[in-house]
């Protein structure tokens, strides 16, 4: 399975939610349209059952080795020799740990450098093409054996975001209400601003009303609610706008009609009629 698109259509946060909730395994490639020097030409993030297991900017399967060598912990030829002692389906990080070459703390530092620090910065990419390939094999040579929740990384990335322009059309509408999908203990640590908004989400107040209660900008509350949507804490429900109806004179007056149960004979007759239409063409 491959899905493709542009970040302007389906934002990175939404992609992360999709991959996490679908418990997907595969490779997400992002090719930024932006050509600033500090931005690589492509980024690969690897998922295993919905969790992030590695991140690279090339597919040469040697980035983790270079990171280890750069820190002066092991030389590349040594890493490769040790790796031969492990199963080809063992992650390089765990292989080096079980062989006593690296310890758990070193793996955590590597994972932070490889995944936890760079991925949130991807949320600042203004436009890019993405592809998720579920058939891409996992790169065991690039994996430390540690995993990260895409939701937590998305939350971190969206908190870091300064320019929200590319996401403006994806934010929940000011007239919408948001309903909680999580009850009881919160799965993520919220900052003060987020917690205040969370406290006001009761399924009846619109985003506009929450902003008024908190004396905050509507846009700021929209951003927070978008973050909540991405991490699966709330769902947006469109609200009724106060715009006057533009109903033409010739339309049926639906508002005056009662809702009644449909009879079995009606359903049977309609089904027979529709099946006739299917067969007639």
């Amino acid at each position: 399975m491959k899905i493709t698109g542009y970040l302007s259509e389906f934002s990175l946060g939404e992609i992360f939610r999709f991959l996490a909730q679908g418990q997907k395994t595969g490779c997400l490639t992002i090719k930024p349209v932006d050509t600033r020097d500090e931005i690589a030409s492509e980024y690969h993030t690897f998922f295993h059952h919905g969790n992030i297991v590695a991140s690279t900017i090339s597919l040469d399967h040697q980035e983790l080795q270079r990171l280890i060598a750069k820190r002066g912990w092991l030389r590349i030829p040594t890493i490769q020799k040790i790796a031969q002692l492990c199963s080809p389906r063992a992650t390089l990080g765990l292989c080096l740990k079980t062989q006593g070459a690296l310890d758990g703390e070193q793996l955590k530092l590597l994972f932070k450098q490889q995944v936890l620090t760079p991925i949130p910065q991807l949320f600042s990419i203004e436009e890019g093409w993405f592809e998720f390939d579920a058939n891409h094999p996992l790169p065991y040579e690039e994996m430390t054996g540690l995993t990260a929740s895409p939701m937590e990384i998305a939350l971190a990335g969206l908190r870091l975001l300064r320019d929200w322009t590319p996401l403006l059309d994806k934010l929940p509408l000011p007239s919408s209400t948001v309903i909680r999908l999580i009850h009881g203990e919160l799965p993520y640590h919220l900052n003060q601003g987020e917690y205040q908004v969370w406290e006001h989400i009761d399924g009846t107040l619109s985003i506009e009303q929450i902003a008024t209660h908190l004396e905050q900008l509507v846009l700021d509350v929209q951003k927070i609610c978008f973050r909540f949507m991405v991490i699966g804490m709330v769902e947006e429900v469109a609200g009724i706008t106060a715009v006057e109806p533009l109903i033409a004179n010739h339309e049926p007056e639906m508002d005056t009609l009662p809702v009644s149960e449909i009879s079995h004979s009606f359903l049977h007759g309609l089904l027979t009629f529709l099946k006739g239409k299917k067969n007639a063409t």
Binding site: A238, G239, I240, T241, A242, V243, P245, L246, I247, M254, D255, L257, P258, V259
Partner: peptide, 12 residues
């Protein structure tokens, strides 16, 4: 932005 209409429609 015309979603007031949905409300009338869906209720019936």
């Amino acid at each position: 932005r015309f979603d007031f209409m949905w409300d009338i429609l869906i209720r019936k």
